[in-house]
Amino acid sequence: MAEPLLKLTNVGKSYAGTDALADITLQVEPGKVLCLLGDNGAGKSTLIKILSGFHTPTTGTVEIDGQPVVFHSPRDASANGIATVHQYGGTFPLMTVGRSFFVGVEPTKGWGPFKRFDKATANEISVRELKGLGITRINDGNRLVGGMSGGERQSLAIARAVYFGAKLLILDEPTAALGVKEASHVLRIIMQARRKGIAVVFVTHNVLHAMTVGDNFAVLIHGRLADSFAKGERTREEITDLMAGGEAMAELEAEIAQYEQDA
């Protein structure tokens, strides 16, 4: 078993005395996909915010490559090779593809006061990296990001993270807003990143998507780790049941049965 790239031990976060997250212990290895499952409000967002440096945990430790780390800002997290891609791609709809790809790390040419943004290089690299992920429709870096589909924007954000050397890719509901075809393309890109040896944390509430690409799974309920298991250890029904909180589903089924009887 490979050394974990990221390891959380008893991580918790409380806001004003309320535990949003408690006792989270999990790990991700390079070249593996950890699926973080959970219903809305289960604490997925809080966990992502801790990993991407927006929040510091109240308790517990975060280790990268065996070294304990504390992130005080998103910058700290990205300096440690963690890249987070949000549902809407975290991209800028009214910017060109080339400009958006290089926000914050703009390539320049020239010298001294004549140093300037190298648009040609930015456009060329961004289009090439998109092609590498199978996006062939965008052949001009001057296109606006807003003209891309949701899946293409996700791909752009992932391409960007991979290009800038992310070791850990956190994908926050990347497939939630996408159609079937586009979602499967994004899943394919996740597998591509995995093959490159990147550790992926894939946050979703779509059990099917999770089971397609996941190596390991963690289910959050009310801010606690309800279950964690490896691929093949649970069936789809078991996971869905667990996420929905079992009883809630059982209640619903009972109600439906009642309606059918009444009808």
Partner: peptide, 28 residues
């Protein structure tokens, strides 16, 4: 025009106006 079109600073201006949180996340 130099600032906006030709420098990284100009790119940051567009990014901040586009999405402040994403811009902050990229380290601007």
């Amino acid at each position: 025009v130099w600032l906006l079109q030709m420098t990284p600073f100009g790119n940051w201006v567009f990014a901040i106006g586009g999405d402040k949180e994403s811009a902050r996340a990229t380290g601007i």
